[in-house]
Design a protein around this nucleic acid. Structure first.
Lengths: 199, 199
DNA sequence: TGTACATCAGTGAACGCGCGTTCACTGATGTAC
DNA sequence: TGTACATCAGTGAACGCGCGTTCACTGATGTAC
C-alpha cells in the first residue's frame, strides 16, 4: 500500500515540519529517519527523494524554525502599540507556544543541535543572534521614545528578555502540567518591566 | 603498553569527570565510550570494570555536576555578606566558569541530556529544581531583611536569575572570544538589581 | 620474610544492533505528438 | 482525444559503519599462612 505521490516542494515542507516536532518532543537523539518517515506516512528511503540526507533535513528544519521565530516577533510588533507592550505580547506568545507543548524555539536553541559541525553551529548562532537583534530593535525603539531606560545597552536587555523564557521552557518540559506558565509569565514580566523602566 | 592500575573508586571519579568535560565541549552526541576511554587513558572495554554501562556513567556525571553546582551556591553564600551580594557573587562565579570554557552547568542543563528515559529526565529536573530552590532561599532571606522586594515570589526571582546566565552561556559557546562575558554580567546585573529592589 | 593464591584492573578481539544510505524496481502523473 | 514515452515519487531489500557491550585472557596488587 503506497503513499500518495506529492510534489517534492510539498514533501520538503512536510518533512521539515515533522523534523521540528520530532526534535522538540524527543530531542536530537530521537530524531531519526525511521521516525521522521513514519510521521509523514512514508517509508525511510523515500526521504531521500526530497533531501540529500539527514543533515539537509535538519538544515531545512532550522530554516523553518527561524522563519517562525522571526514572524512571532513581527506579529507582536504589529499587534501591540508601543515597544514595551510589544515585548510583553511577545513574551505571552512564547508562553503560549510553550504551554501548548510546542516549545520548539527554546528547546531547539538549547539542545545539541547547537553542537555538531562548524557550519551547523554557525547557523544556529545566526538564528539566535538574529532573534536578539530583532528584540534589541524593539528595545532601542523604547529607549528613543523614553519608555525604556537608556543607560543599559539594548542588547543586554534583549538577552535578559530571552532569559525570561528559557529556564521556564525547561521547567515546563520537565514538569508538564505542574507548572503554570501563564502565571509565571505575569510575575516575571513585572520584574523585567521594573528593571528596564527609566529612573 | 597497559595503563596503571587504579582502584575503582578513583577511576569512577576520573571517568565521571571526563564525561562531564566531554558533554560540555561536544554535547551528548560527542559523548561516546571510545572518546571517554581515551580521555582517561584507558581502553574502551576497561570502562566496564567500573560502570555497568554508558547510562550509569551519565548518572555519575550528573551527580558530580549536581554537587559542583550546589557547592558554587554555598560558596557564594559563605563568601558574601548579605543575600544581594551573594547573588551577585554567584553570578560572577558562573560567568567565570563559562568564560573559562567550563560552561558545564548551563550547557548540560540545556542539552539533550534532559531527553532520554523517564528516570534520567526526572534526575535532571531534580537537579535544576534544587538549584532554583537554593537560589530561592537566598532570595527569601533578602526579602525578610528587606533588601529584595517582597511582592514577587522568590521562585520567580530565582528563575529570572537563572535566565541571566543561560542565554549568555549559549552565546559564549557559539561566539567564543567574541563575547565579553564579564562585561555582560556587569550590565545584566544592574537590570536585575533594579528589578528586584524594593520600591 | 618469603611463597602461594585470590582478587581485580586493564587488554584486544569479536559480536550485534541501530541506523543512515543506496539501488533496482514499480507505478502514477504529466507531456509530446 | 487518444497513445507513447519521460519523469519522478514511493517501495523494500540490502549494505555498511559506528558504537555499546561481552568475554577469555594477562599480569599486577595484596593477603593468608
Amino acid at each position: 500500500v503506497a503513499a500518495d505521490k506529492l510534489s517534492t516542494q510539498v514533501r520538503q515542507e512536510q518533512i521539515a515540519g515533522a523534523a521540528l516536532d520530532l526534535i522538540a518532543s524527543r530531542g536530537l537523539q530521537g530524531f531519526n529517519i525511521d521516525r521522521l518517515a513514519k510521521s509523514v506516512g512514508l517509508v525511510p528511503s523515500a526521504i531521500y527523494r526530497h533531501f540529500d540526507g539527514k543533515e539537509q533535513v535538519l538544515r531545512a528544519a532550522l530554516s523553518m524554525f527561524r522563519d517562525r521565530l522571526y514572524s512571532l516577533v513581527e506579529e507582536a510588533r504589529d499587534e501591540a502599540d508601543g515597544p514595551l507592550e510589544a515585548l510583553e505580547l511577545l513574551l505571552v506568545k512564547h508562553a503560549r507556544l510553550i504551554a501548548g507543548h510546542k516549545a520548539v524555539p527554546h528547546i531547539l536553541m538549547c539542545s545539541d543541535v547547537a553542537a555538531g559541525d562548524e557550519s551547523r553551529r554557525a547557523k544556529v548562532q545566526r538564528i539566535f543572534g538574529g532573534y536578539i537583534d530583532r528584540v534589541g530593535a524593539i528595545v532601542r525603539e523604547g529607549q528613543r521614545s523614553g519608555v525604556i531606560r537608556g543607560d543599559v545597552d539594548a542588547r543586554t536587555i534583549a538577552l535578559m528578555f530571552a532569559g525570561m523564557i528559557q529556564p521556564a521552557a525547561l521547567l515546563s518540559r520537565a514538569k508538564g502540567r505542574g507548572f503554570d506558565m501563564n502565571a509565571h509569565v505575569r510575575r516575571v514580566w513585572r520584574l523585567f518591566e521594573r528593571g528596564v523602566r527609566p529612573e
